[in-house]
């Protein structure tokens, strides 16, 4: 919960978090080592100095640390756990639905659990999706189209097999498809960040929402174009948001573009924990305004209303969260005790 200077409470849903194990013990090969080190480079490069972790802390953290970083030290009220397998890189997977489910079972009122599927898994994958939806009551999945699988270095959403899986997911009651646009999609000769496949499936699957994580960065212009065309395409701010610290002028441009093209109702906050932590991201976001000159030019203003939408209201709508009821649940589990203590101390 974020509380403004005037005492107004803002309910925060973190759209993108991970409970991963990237430790050397779990690394299967050099790729596993390079993968977590690449994430660490993002963390070390874009975090303020006093928010930096050691590589060892970063490789694997425990449930308690994550809980406290998000909900006690940070302002998150709820967080969406995005599952990512990477079984070619990690012995027991990077961030599996089982691992995430175990975390959720400790703090059920705090987490929304999303699964994953990979169209290259064929019938076995469809059966697994069915079982996972039944077991974990999933309403969302995270797709990592750049995942390596044997000889394959990735897939596209507009592949025939992807259609089969999206049809199955929709039938099973999945509503939200989070897509990470990664850099290693085949064929290698093409512009591998291209978001064109999202356009295709968003048109074909009107009953699904497509949340494009990282707003298609670095192809913000392409992303804005398709998101404007499609009513069911959303932008996730993970990775864009930390630029608020290192490159505030750049972040202002991104926000101005997003607000101008896709509007305040289709942008979702995400910390990408453990790459970044909610405390500093939200402190800076709440203090942030789009510079006057840019506002004049684009008409984009980051009002308190807009910030509330981005931080929680939009995700609540996508995931059917009744905010008042959820606050009750979190409060009943002692989730706001630290706030009461802090207010009493003031």
């Amino acid at each position: 919960m974020y509380r403004t200077a005037s005492g107004e409470e803002i309910f925060v849903i973190d759209g993108h978090t991970h409970f991963w194990d990237g430790s050397p013990a779990n690394q299967k090969n050099i790729h596993g080592k390079q993968f977590i080190e690449c994430f660490y480079a993002y963390h070390a490069n874009l975090s303020p100095p006093d928010e930096k972790w050691t590589l060892e802390q970063f490789e694997k953290y425990d449930a308690r640390t994550m809980h406290d970083d998000l909900f006690v030290r940070g302002y998150d009220d709820m967080a969406i756990l995005q599952s990512t397998y990477l079984t070619d890189f990690y012995n027991h997977g990077f961030n599996t639905v089982e691992r995430n489910a175990a975390l959720k079972s400790e703090y059920p009122e705090r987490f929304i659990l999303n699964g994953a599927f990979d169209p290259r898994d064929g019938n076995k994958g469809l059966e697994q999706l069915h079982a996972d939806v039944e077991k974990y009551k999933l309403t969302g999945v995270k797709l990592y189209t750049a995942e390596w699988r044997g000889e394959s270095k990735g897939y596209r959403l507009d592949d025939k097999e992807s259609y089969t899986f999206l049809e199955a997911a929709e039938k099973l009651g999945i509503k939200n498809i989070h897509v990470h646009k990664g850099p290693t999609i085949i064929p290698l000769n093409k512009d591998s960040f291209h978001v064109g496949d999202i356009d295709d499936v968003a048109t074909s699957f009107q009953g699904l929402n497509f949340i494009v994580e990282h707003c298609g960065l670095p192809r913000l212009d392409d992303f804005c174009w398709i998101a404007t065309q499609e009513t069911n395409v959303y932008g996730g701010l993970a990775v864009a948001l930390p630029f608020i610290h290192t490159r505030p002028a750049y972040f202002a441009h991104v926000m101005a573009e997003l607000l101008f093209w896709i509007g305040p109702d289709k942008i979702l906050y995400g910390s990408d924990y453990g790459i970044w932590t909610p405390k500093w991201l939200i402190d800076r976001f709440m203090a942030f305004e789009i510079p006057e000159e840019l506002s004049k030019e684009t008409g984009a203003v980051l009002t308190l209303e807009t910030k509330k939408k981005i931080l929680g209201l939009n995700a609540a709508r996508l995931y059917n969260i009744d905010i008042d009821a959820q606050k009750q649940r979190i409060g009943a589990a002692g989730g706001y005790d630290h706030l009461a203590a802090a207010h009493a101390a003031e």
Binding site: N45, P218, L220
Partner: peptide, 21 residues
Amino acid sequence: RRVDVNAEFNSALCRGLLHVR
């Protein structure tokens, strides 16, 4: 300038990542 905004993101990120590495 939208093209430029993308490029600035890339450039800042690439330099930063190279430096950490």
